[in-house]
Amino acid sequence: MSRCAPVSVVMSAFQEGDSVAETVGSVRSAAVRPREIVVVDDGSTDGGCDRDWPPSVRVLRQDHIGIAAARNLGARAARQPVIVFLDAHCTVDPGWLAPLVAVLERAPDALVGPAVRDSGDPRFVGCGAEIVDPLLTYRWRPAAGGGQEVGLVPGGCLAVVRDRFLAQGGFAPFTGFGLEDVELALRWWRLGRPLLGAPESGIVHRFRNVPPYPADHLAWLQNVLRTALLHLPGPYLRACVLACARFPSFPSAVATVLAEPWVPAHSRLLAAEARTVTAYVDRWAPDAFPAPA
């Protein structure tokens, strides 16, 4: 019989089909189960969330906005002190949950992620990530033994203490898919909070070259620009904007983002800053931006 941990697993789903039930089944079959699973249906039309779920699984529904809004809805509804955000196309190892909870017990202000294997190529195991280019793309780092600091906890599986997550506003109000985990990592770093990997925890993630929904490139580009305006100082911001300007949708994206109320959020982050973005880039994105002239 599986033991239960005081954890809410929050899964957002958009056109995930049978993968939702398969991921829920994997989580419920592990050696330690969460006390609840909150599935947030982000406006799906494929019926993947329409199941006869057990009592420990709740389904919430919203119009299609995107992964950040869906995860925030699930976090607000969660009833347990620890949240684990989990993509709806994963298989968890039997002992995946306990190491994540153990790290948060030692470091309750942390963001924590597991070791992740690619279902298509399980030879590589990544744990945490680092930023590699001005568009804030990230690359997985090889898993190392014991606890490890990381530059970014990818959102496919991310554990956090619920009250601390909500007190910082949750994920930024992004639309579509992409960058919500990058923005959260930069915010956490600037607040002086830990970004940690827990390689003793393991999951298998189905990375997809083609998602089961049309790509929304405009929303992605807007999220890149939102992250840059909130966090990047002058030279890095310039490099990011120039990289974004190569895309045909840039005029629309930048006009939308500049019209949003980003200045107050930028000022609050600057006032609360305990570590600088320059220090972050030096450590976790050393090759992402051109060297200063």
Rank of each mutant, 00 (worst) to 15 (best):
Thr91Lys: 13
Pro108Thr: 00
Ser26Asn: 12
Val254His: 04
Met11Ala: 15
Arg106Lys: 13
Asp282His: 12
Ile37Glu: 04
Thr23Gln: 12
Leu218Trp: 02
Ile67Gly: 10
Leu60Arg: 06
Pro173Tyr: 04
Phe165Asp: 05
Arg71Cys: 07
Val277Leu: 14
Val277Arg: 02
Thr137Asn: 10
His217Asp: 11
Arg117Phe: 07
Cys240Trp: 00
Arg123Gly: 12
Val150His: 06
Asn223Arg: 04
Trp140Glu: 08
Arg61Phe: 09
Arg226Thr: 07
His205Tyr: 12
Arg187Val: 03
Thr137Trp: 06
Asn223Ser: 05
Thr175Gly: 15
Gly176Asn: 04
Gly47Lys: 12
Arg51Ala: 14
Cys90Arg: 01
Arg162Lys: 13
Asp109Pro: 02
Pro134Tyr: 00
Gly147Phe: 09
Cys127Ala: 11
Phe247Ala: 15
Leu184Cys: 03
Trp189Pro: 03
Pro99His: 13
Arg71Gln: 00
Tyr236Phe: 05
Leu242Ala: 14
Asp121Gln: 09
Ala115Met: 05
Asn223Thr: 01
Ile37His: 09
Trp262Leu: 15
Gly178Asn: 02
Glu36Phe: 01
Arg58Ile: 15
Gly95Gln: 00
Val39Tyr: 11
Asp216Ser: 07
Ala253Gln: 02
Arg35Phe: 10
Pro55Tyr: 09
Pro34Arg: 11
Gly178Ala: 02
Ala291Ser: 14
Ala21Gly: 10
Ala245Thr: 05
Arg206Asn: 10
Glu130Pro: 08
Val39His: 09
Leu135Thr: 12
Pro54His: 04
Thr256Cys: 11
Thr256Trp: 11
Glu200Ala: 15
Val39Asn: 10
Ala70Asn: 06
Val40His: 13
Arg208Leu: 13
Phe247Gln: 05
Ala68Thr: 00
Gly170Cys: 03
Val161Ala: 11
Gly197Ser: 07
Leu166Ala: 09
Gly234Arg: 14
Phe247Thr: 05
Gly192Arg: 06
Thr45Glu: 11
Cys127Glu: 07
Asp282Phe: 03
Cys4Ala: 15
Pro199Ala: 06
Ala98Pro: 10
Pro261Lys: 04
Thr23Asn: 05
Pro248Ala: 02
Ala245Asp: 07
Val82Tyr: 11
Gln222Arg: 10
Arg3Tyr: 13
Arg268Lys: 14
Gly146His: 00
Leu158Tyr: 00
Pro212Lys: 01
Pro194Ser: 05
Val161Trp: 06
Leu158Asn: 04
Gly192Asp: 05
Ala110Gly: 12
Leu218Asp: 02
His64Asn: 08
Cys127Pro: 01
Ala21Phe: 05
Gly147Met: 12
Leu97Trp: 11
Pro6Gln: 08
Arg58Gln: 15
Asp121Tyr: 06
Glu16Pro: 11
Phe250Met: 01
Glu105Gly: 12
Leu221His: 05
Arg51His: 13
Gly197Leu: 05
Gly176Ile: 04
Gly66Pro: 07
Cys240Ile: 00
Arg208Ala: 11
Phe177Glu: 11
